[in-house]
């Protein structure tokens, strides 16, 4: 769980996780700009893939949340894209998965927490939101609060544990069999697990928002 400091900016240490987060952010921003520069009414080439992804996520969100959920599609899509790229970054040579660090996943989970609770406050008002904590009885107040905290904790730990645990297993296998096998396992942990864990995180985010609305 130690952090590798790569360099300092104005005396502030920058770890490899933060560096790779910035790289992924840059790739996503530049990629979004390039691929959405000249969108056409009748899609050609790569626009098909983009429309497929946006349509898929929108269908998922609208199916679970309903028509109110359309406002959350950009947030969910950004979350999914960032986590997918972050999971894949671990497969690159010298690459570090930012999601294999608890700080990143905790930040993402807190983000989902803020969005879902903020949406409820905006939808129902502050009074009804606060009343939800003493529902159905006043005695259940501590239980409700613990439930909300454990949601965030398990959301963060699930992504982190899977990525970090995969990295540890890969390291151990690499010590025993340095040839061929780690490469295959790298593709398994990076590609397959990366996609599955992204889907899980995104779907749980949708469900958490839907529960609060």
């Amino acid at each position: 769980m130690e952090t590798n400091i790569v360099f300092h900016i104005l005396g502030m240490p920058v770890s490899d996780n933060v560096l790779w987060t910035w790289i992924i952010m840059a790739v996503l921003i530049v990629g979004s700009w390039i691929f959405t520069r000249n969108l056409k009414r009748i899609p050609t080439g790569f626009q098909h893939v983009i429309e497929l992804a946006v349509d898929g996520i929108e269908g998922l969100v609208v199916r679970d949340i309903g028509d109110k959920g359309k406002a959350f599609v950009p947030f969910i899509l950004t979350l999914g894209l960032f986590i997918l790229f972050a999971n894949f970054a671990g497969m690159l040579p010298m690459g570090v998965s930012p999601t294999a660090s608890l700080s990143t996943t905790a930040a993402l989970a807190v983000l989902v927490f803020l969005v879902s609770h903020g949406a409820e406050i905006k939808e129902k008002g502050l009074k009804a939101y606060l009343k939800g904590y003493v529902d159905p009885f006043f005695i259940l107040l501590p239980l409700n609060i613990i439930g909300e905290i454990s949601k965030v904790l398990s959301h963060a730990f699930r992504l982190y544990g899977n990525l970090f645990g995969g990295g540890i297993i890969l390291g151990i296998i690499y010590m025993f069999i340095p040839y061929v096998v780690p490469g295959v396992l790298n593709v398994w942990f990076g590609f397959f697990q990366g996609i599955i864990q992204t889907a899980v995180f995104v779907m749980l985010a949708i469900v958490y928002i839907q529960v609060r609305l």
Partner: peptide
């Protein structure tokens, strides 16, 4: 199914977190 498995998995992830805490901290 994937959603259900992900939620089922969290207890396993908790024990992994405990093990990591024990080893590294």
């Amino acid at each position: 199914m994937i959603l259900g498995q992900a939620i089922t998995e969290s207890t396993g992830i908790y024990s992994l977190a405990i093990a990591l805490l024990l080893i590294f901290s």
